[in-house]
């Protein structure tokens, strides 16, 4: 009886703040409703979904988001693993704690603050990056204002911000490797590559995959960082699908259309989550 009662607060919280809004969102996605129209919502069936699927702009935003996720998470993983290996077994390295603290700092900053100061760093007139480039005799660039460089410029900031997370996951993965196996590899005189593949990756791959999946889900939702740097511009160069959703929902107040888009994005996120749960089960089975 008591364990059941103890569940009530968390269940109530979940129902009030999660289940009801999600159901509300789902319901609203079948209506034509603008908050500023002064009219009651009109049932429209699947019209919003149909409009979204026929909207080439949304598809372009989705493809841009996919590119952002794949390239961002890919670079973060490679860099994160490299840095994680660098710090592995570095307990006696002087200044290790300071170095790790500095390394993890970007991850704990709010994206809005990061976006603001990176916008200033990139500024072609006052920015420190251009000042440095000019200092070494190079011509400056308008990183965020030029449609050929803006996407790469925001990607760099995302990588700077979230590589520490992959470092953390790599260090956790490396910590999970049994010491005995490392010693055995040492005795067997395995090469570095063999040790990586047969020992480290074998034990650490689940934690690394978890990190990649969490980053993928998070990266898919990126909005605040980019919105603060470019507002999705120049043109639509950095407009990810979450920015489109924010704009339609909270600038244009087109609640029906944006609810439908939110439902589609929710389904995509659920697909990521399902993969994540599958990986966890896969690990359990393998361990068994």
């Amino acid at each position: 009886m008591l364990p059941g009662l103890l569940l009530i607060p968390v269940l109530a919280f979940f129902i009030v703040w999660n289940t009801i809004p999600t159901l509300w969102l789902l319901g609203l996605s079948f209506y034509r409703f603008s908050l500023t129209s002064g009219r009651a919502p009109i049932y429209a069936g699947l019209l919003n979904f149909q409009n979204i699927l026929n909207d080439s702009g949304v598809w372009l935003d989705l493809s841009r988001t996919l590119l952002f996720v794949v390239s961002g998470v890919g670079i973060q993983t490679v860099l994160g693993v490299a840095l994680g290996l660098l710090f592995w077994n570095s307990g006696r390295l002087p200044g290790r704690r300071v170095a790790l603290t500095l390394l993890f700092a970007p991850m704990v900053l709010t994206p809005v603050a990061s976006g603001t100061f990176w916008r200033l760093i990139y500024d072609p007139t006052f920015g420190v990056l251009n000042a440095m480039l000019r200092g070494v005799g190079l011509s400056g660039a308008n990183f965020l204002g030029d449609s050929s460089t803006a996407f790469a410029a925001v990607l760099v900031v995302d990588v700077w911000m979230w590589t520490p997370f992959m470092v953390l996951m790599t260090m956790a993965a490396l910590a999970s490797v049994p010491k005995a196996e490392l010693e055995a590899a040492e005795i067997d005189q395995l090469s570095w590559m063999q040790r990586m593949r047969l020992v480290l990756l074998h034990h650490g791959k689940y934690i690394l995959m978890l990190g990649i999946l969490l980053r993928t889900i998070d990266s898919f939702k990126t909005m605040d960082l980019i919105y603060n740097m470019t507002f999705g511009g120049p043109g639509t160069t950095t407009q990810l699908v979450a920015i489109t959703l924010y704009r339609r929902a909270f600038e244009a107040f087109n609640m029906g259309w944006s609810s439908a888009l939110a439902v589609i994005l929710l389904l995509i996120s659920i697909a990521f989550t399902a993969t994540f749960i599958f990986v966890l089960h896969w690990r359990d089975k393998a361990d068994a």
Binding site: S34, T36, G235, A252
Partner: peptide
């Protein structure tokens, strides 16, 4: 118009796309 912000968003998007050379 009540649809002001929605119309503005489209306009800003296209005007900056041209100004920045995206189109």
């Amino acid at each position: 118009d009540p649809k002001y912000s929605e119309m503005l968003a489209v306009q800003q998007e296209a005007f900056t796309a041209y100004a920045t050379g995206q189109i």
